[in-house]
């Protein structure tokens, strides 16, 4: 089967995600634009954050969009990879910190 759940061209549909709920869609895009535009942080810094989140969230559309955005903003390969390592470290860390729950239970239950 040649058709996939994730298709590259689907990224072009992003502007249409408010199609069946335009009010919420408009509000989302207003928020999205404000959140990702330059503020106290630069557009470049926000692009790197977005790339790290996209990778952690395994979103192929966002990885595509923000890798291109980072390239457009002149971000180096090293910087992009460092940002992804921050995401990877956070995922590892928030996994491992949940071992606390396991260890607490183990210590309570075992004789």
């Amino acid at each position: 089967m040649s058709r996939q759940y994730y298709e590259t061209s689907d990224l072009q549909d992003f502007p249409n995600i408010g199609e069946f709920a335009p009010d919420q869609g408009d509000k989302f895009f207003e928020y999205y634009t404000t959140a990702t535009s330059a503020g106290k942080l630069t557009e470049r810094e926000k692009s790197l954050i977005a790339l790290a989140v996209a990778t952690v969230r395994h979103c192929p559309y966002c990885i595509d969009a923000y890798t291109n955005k980072c390239l457009s903003m002149g971000v180096s390969h090293d910087e992009m990879m460092e940002a992804i390592h921050v995401g990877a470290a956070m995922v590892a860390g928030d996994t491992l910190v949940h071992s606390t729950q396991m260890r607490k239970i183990v210590k309570k239950k075992e004789m």
Binding site: A38, T42, E43, R44, N68, K69, L71, S72, M73
Partner: peptide
Amino acid sequence: FLPGSQQA
């Protein structure tokens, strides 16, 4: 790819 913001 396209260029980013000229200002940035």
